[in-house]
């Protein structure tokens, strides 16, 4: 992986790259089941969690991943930091790199910030942990992992190798416009062969879908009856003041996955959500907790998938020849 130093977009990986992450995630999932769920693979490496936008779950997930790989973890949040004292993002990351950091996990409210950080650094790797409305590649990877393993488990078969989601019909429902998860998932799911349909009111779709390998629908009921997976996105209440929706109540009535609507789903259909769930808004609590829901599994798989990403970026020196074995 010495060539690809960073994970900025899930599109950088391709089907083979996604498969490699998923395969490694299996081994790290096994590590997670051990009495001592930790391996020394990244001993001596330092990972900085640069969450310039607030996040609890993703930050904890990366922190757990790095620690289970025995990396040293330094955390950084924008409040109370040098950034609030006027230091630029560029100076901040370059100064940290000078202290001997091997990887930056970057979350930022502005799209492209991780790409820019990658451009400023001289040797450290960058993992995009969510940038604006652009991408959230590790979320899409853990969703692919969850989908492929969970479907195999429920069907009682081995997960397909290489990982494929061929022919799977996935409906992504909600605020596509502002969602980095949607962008990464559309890319990842379609790369693995799934058929993706975006279901949202026109105000919550991107200004242009040119080049997106998707169908679009404004009729959730019709999609539920024929999809294998319904992927529900969070509705952010702050969008309300920007006039994208008349009210949350109306959204729930037209696009919410209510108990009644969930009955339209096929018997083997899965319900996914990147979290955090606004129960009762985009997703009824009963549906979130139903057997069809794999939301908790998604969260659990996050650590193993992020271990795989960090290990691929940092775990091997890339130059063959000086190794010792036996």
């Amino acid at each position: 992986m010495s060539q690809a130093r960073h994970l900025l977009s899930v599109s950088d990986l391709g089907a083979e790259g996604i498969d490699e992450v998923l395969r490694l995630a299996d081994t790290f999932a096994e590590v997670g089941r051990r009495p001592i769920p930790r391996v020394p693979a990244l001993r001596g490496k330092t990972v900085v969690l640069g969450f310039f936008e607030d996040s609890t779950r993703t930050r904890m997930s990366f922190e757990a991943a790095a620690k289970r790989l025995s990396a040293d973890v330094m955390s950084f949040s924008s409040s109370g930091s040098s950034l609030s004292k006027g230091e630029s993002l560029r100076d901040t990351v370059c100064n940290l790199e000078a202290m001997g950091v091997d990887a930056f996990v970057v979350r930022h409210s502005c799209a492209g910030a991780p790409s820019q950080v990658a451009g400023w650094l001289s040797h450290a790797s960058v993992v995009n942990a969510g940038d604006g409305a652009h991408e959230h590649p590790t979320q899409a990877l853990l969703d692919c992992y969850t989908l492929s393993r969970e479907r195999a488990r429920r069907l009682g078969v081995h997960p397909p190798r290489p990982a494929v989601l061929a022919g799977l019909r996935i409906a992504i429902v909600g605020d596509i416009r502002h969602s980095r998860v949607a962008r990464s998932c559309v890319a990842a799911f379609s790369t693995l062969g799934a058929e993706v349909t975006l279901v949202a009111p026109p105000t919550l779709l991107p200004a242009s879908l040119a080049g997106w390998p998707v169908e679009v629908s404004h009729d959730l009921d019709a999609q539920l009856a024929k999809c294998d997976v319904v992927y529900v996105l969070r509705i952010q209440a702050e969008r309300m003041k920007e006039q994208f929706l008349p009210s949350l109540r109306e959204y729930t009535a037209t696009y919410g996955l209510t108990v009644q609507r969930a009955r339209l789903l096929g018997p083997s259909a899965l319900v996914m959500h990147p979290g955090p769930v606004c129960r009762g808004v985009e997703l009824a609590a009963e549906v979130a907790d139903s057997p069809a829901s794999v939301i908790t599994t998604q969260v659990g798989n996050g650590v193993a998938v992020r271990m795989a990403v960090l290990y691929l970026l940092l775990g091997s020196g890339g130059s063959l020849g000086s190794g010792e074995a036996g």
Partner: peptide
């Protein structure tokens, strides 16, 4: 034992 190897930094090691 891939993740426990001591040459993990010297060359690509994948289970």
């Amino acid at each position: 034992v891939a993740y426990y190897r001591d040459d993990i930094r010297l060359r690509p090691v994948v289970p």
